[in-house]
Structures are given as C-alpha cells and as structure tokens.
C-alpha cells in the first residue's frame, strides 16, 4: 500500500507515492532522478549517501522516505548555482580532494554540516567528523585539506 510523501527537495516542493519500505535514497535517486547522492555500502557505514534533512547530515540509505514527510531535504545538487561551483566543491577541485569521486557528494554534504556548526574546524576536528565517510581511494589527506580550504573560502 503506497503512501504519499511530500517534502521540500533542494528548495522545491515535491511529492511522490512510495511504498513504506522505500528508502530516502531511493526516493531521491529513483523517483526524483537526483543521482548525485550515491549508494556505497547500503549499511550506513560509508557515507556516500549523506544528505541534509532539516539542516542535519544523515545517511539516506538508513532512513525511510516516509520518515521525512514534511522535511526540508538538500542534496549535493543544491550546491552549485548558475553553473558556478559552491566554494566547498571548488576547494575539492583545487586541492584534488577526489580521485574516483564516488564518495565525494557524501563527504561534501557531511563537511557542510560540520562547518554550519564550526566554521573554522581544526584538522583533528575535520578528521574526527569524517568518521562516517569512507574514501576507498584513500584520499583522506587531500579531503581534509580541501575541507579546510573550503571552510576558509566560506568564511570569506
């Protein structure tokens, strides 16, 4: 029996009829075709599926779509405006913060949650925060540098 879920997705009011067992990441990728949010492990370990729900980073593979009824959801697609990368995206490009890029959307959404609460994080705070994001290209040093530079750019 399908249920209608209405959310704000990247600033736009949308709704979809889903089964109760539909995951948030399935709603985002398969119903709304926003494929920047990835599914890596599907067991809430790797963080490739991180999106924001009401401003907090969450793993969208471990949330039911029906749980976010009425919520404000932001994905990686919300960041670039008018063809210009967000300062954090630009910092990942500048500092080679990605190799294959599969983990990158989740890492960036996770980093932006950190910076919303801690605009000038130390290297150790960034590393601790990335506990829930795995990069199998093992590019952590450049990821940490990119987040630090992105935070600096966002502070202006």
């Amino acid at each position: 029996m399908s249920v209608t879920v209405s959310i704000t997705l990247n600033g736009e009011s949308v709704s979809a009829a889903v089964e109760p067992s539909t995951l948030l990441v399935e709603l985002i990728r398969e119903h709304f075709r926003l494929t920047g949010t990835h599914v890596g492990c599907d067991t809430s370990q790797c963080g490739a599926c991180v999106v924001h729900v009401n401003g907090c980073s969450v793993k969208s593979c471990t949330l039911l779509a029906v749980q976010v009824e009425g919520a404000d959801i932001s994905t990686i697609e919300s960041l670039a405006k008018n063809g210009r990368l967000h300062p954090m995206q630009q910092a990942f490009k500048t500092h080679h913060g990605l190799q294959c890029g599969f983990c990158t959307p989740g890492v960036i959404m996770s980093a932006l949650d950190l910076i919303a609460n801690n605009p000038d994080p130390s290297e150790m705070e960034i590393r601790n925060w990335l506990e829930g994001n795995l990069c199998r290209c093992t590019g952590y040093n450049n990821i940490v540098r990119a987040i630090s530079a992105g935070a600096q750019a966002m502070r202006g």
Binding site: G47, C56, V58, T62, S110
Partner: peptide
C-alpha cells in the same frame, strides 16, 4: 557513539 550522521538520528 558511531559517527555524526548516526548521532543526528
């Protein structure tokens, strides 16, 4: 506990 995303939920 866990990681930031787990602590958020």
């Amino acid at each position: 506990i866990g990681d930031p995303q787990v602590r958020n939920r």
